[in-house]
């Protein structure tokens, strides 16, 4: 029972992490129909920016997280303006190829700038775990979970309650009609890509101090993010959240009770099962926000 409770806590923390990874990716696909292969690299970029601000420039840890996220927003806007804006009428395959190329450039740029050796980001939290009965968790992980939840809620409110959110949803439903209604499609796309990129950078900024920062850290994360989005339903914000937690719990319990050797395989087995039974993902299109 003690072990099950600890797995529940671990799965919740891991699921929150996965949900945060998934929402930025699904937001961009939902609004722009762009498969963002740079998502994992924007995650790594956020982590490196945090490292640079904290370890090299001596910036306060919490300020560094915000600055790293803003850098991610800026880089995302730049990618949209330079690479994607001129390709708005291009087919999805061409856009995917450009994004794969951009991902390779970003990863190699990180290797060139930082070297291949992983970095540890110092943080102000106590290194000893908080203990509640049979379960334990690091304060840093709880902070990451709380910020992830706040970001999820904040972006849901932004999409649901603000004019910018209405513009994004209108663009998703029918770009031509939205444009006729006065929505500036170009700026909606730039804002969407920038926000999605900022979320990826925020995930990297938050998780860099939990794990370690390396140029290839985005590879596995990119793969998981795609798995989460496919599991939840492409373009669905609640789907990405549910998919993130579902994947986190399956990996944690299967790893803990069945086999750590095939831990990742159980996650992908879940995706195969969901897609076989519900090809649109866990949250069908009509329920989607983005």
């Amino acid at each position: 029972m003690d072990q099950a409770l600890q797995h529940l806590v671990n799965g919740t923390v891991l699921g929150g992490t996965y949900a945060l990874l998934g929402i930025g990716l699904t937001l961009i696909f939902g609004v722009m129909r762009v498969v963002n292969f740079t998502h994992g690299e924007l995650y790594a970029f956020g982590a490196y920016m945090t490292y640079a601000f904290v370890s090299l420039l001596g910036v306060n840890f919490f300020a560094a997280l915000a600055l790293a996220t803003l850098c991610g927003v800026g880089l995302g806007a730049l990618i949209e303006l330079v690479l994607l804006r001129s390709m708005r009428k291009a087919d999805i395959d061409s856009v995917m190829l450009v994004m794969i190329g951009a991902s390779l450039v970003l990863q190699n740029g990180e290797m060139w700038a930082w070297g291949g050796v992983a970095k540890l980001v110092p943080n102000p939290f106590n290194g000893s775990p908080l203990v509640l009965g049979p379960v334990s968790v690091l304060p840093l992980r709880l902070f990451v979970l709380a910020v992830s939840a706040a970001l999820l809620l904040g972006f849901w409110l932004m999409l649901d309650r603000t004019r910018a959110g209405v513009a994004m949803r209108a663009t998703f439903q029918d770009p031509e009609t939205a444009a006729l209604m006065g929505v500036r499609i170009g700026w909606v796309n730039t804002a969407t890509f920038a926000i999605g990129s900022g979320l990826a950078a925020a995930a990297g900024a938050l998780l860099g101090p939990v794990f370690m920062v390396s140029p290839t850290m985005g590879d596995l994360v990119g793969l998981k993010a795609f798995a989460i989005v496919i599991l939840g339903g492409l373009g669905s914000l609640p789907g990405a959240t549910i998919g993130g937690f579902a994947l986190g719990f399956v990996e944690e319990y299967a790893g803990g009770y069945l086999s750590t050797e095939y831990r990742d395989a159980f996650g992908f087995l879940l995706i195969i099962l969901v897609l076989a039974l519900k090809p649109q993902g866990l949250v069908p299109a009509k329920e989607r926000i983005g």
Partner: peptide, 13 residues
């Protein structure tokens, strides 16, 4: 796996 970063399941076991 060599790329794994979250080892909580293994350590809990």
């Amino acid at each position: 796996t060599p790329e794994a970063t979250d080892l909580a399941a293994q350590l809990t076991a």
